[in-house]
Nucleic acid binder design. Sequence first.
RNA 1: GCCGAGGUAGCUCAGUUGGCAGAGCACAGCCCUGAAAAGGCUGGUGUCGACAGUUCGAUUCUGUCCCUCGGCA
Length: 335
Amino acid sequence: MTRLSEAQVAARPLLLVVGPTAVGKSEIALALAQTLGTEILTADSRQVFRGLDVGTDKPPVESRGGVPHRLIDLAEPDQPFNAGAFRRHALVEIERLYGEKRVPLVVGGTGLYVRALVRGLCDVPETDLPTRARLIEQARRQGRAFMYQELQRVDPATAKRIHPNDEPKILRALEIYQRSGKRLSEIQDHHRFGDDTFTSLIVGLTRERGALYRRIEVRVEHLFARGLVEETRRLLAQGYSRESAAMKGLGYRQVAGLLAGEYGLEEAVRLLKRDTKRFAKRQMTWFRKEPHVEWMSIQEHESATTVAERIARRAEDFLAHLADSHSAQVVVEGR
RNA sequence: GCCGAGGUAGCUCAGUUGGCAGAGCACAGCCCUGAAAAGGCUGGUGUCGACAGUUCGAUUCUGUCCCUCGGCA
């Protein structure tokens, strides 16, 4: 059990455990949270949706070992949720934990959410659904190339950063321009992920690729065994369309195709295994270039508790130095 | 044993009238500022079964051998 000192709280420490899907984050984080006497703040763009349980591999309440899991079940599957909303919710939980002298532990695989928390988001208008719907409709009628030309006209610098085929990003940039009259490129150049709200220790978990892929295959088999098909059928029956953000997630997308009769069970399993591996690869690419990640490689025989102990030792060290540097700073200020 | 078909990328296969080997899938590398488990970009990874012959040059033609599949025995 770790209680932070006033000086440590003042330094605003943040502990983050990141890594690709199926690397073993959840189990390790649970042991780590128990050791540190804190809670788990999940940074996961799909676990925020209520009812997406099996497919997102959300830890069932009975296997959470008494550790509260926050930042999950925040929205209905058809409600909008995004990185900004995640950041706002996370900041509330983090302040509460500081008040309780506990170190916040953020665990997740959604790179953008982690980055939004650690380094902030630039000051752009909140997503506006009517505007977005209008732009999507316009893109459907006039074509993606037209929308891209439009972006080139109003914000050439952003157009240069976005590929002409990347429709969601083109539309988002246009949306920002229409809503604020400002160019996204200028807002971004001003921000540059420069927020520095916390003193962060980011631990990145990895495994040898073949081992990770084998774990993904096993997980996918488990998801089907635990009722992924039934869960998807239920969500569709509740009226959540295949087009909603929640249902476009891994698992639901592939099973929706199965339920629509586009292919059989075996193919659905194959597709989900393939797509999950591709996703893990994209996560690795993202986190590899995230600054200040301390990488920790997990061996195949290693237990979650062993890894959690390694992280806990590193975290204690991090917190101890935090107190040092902060008191040093106090001395300097006092002169 | 005989007859037939085949052996080219991780898989399924195309192809070269003899001139740097190519598709799909799989895979790899990468991008990302409120949709991010989304969306997008790039890349061929090869002893063309083996050995010999013909040729300036053989994955391609010829011969021998090996292997796989089917049919007949």
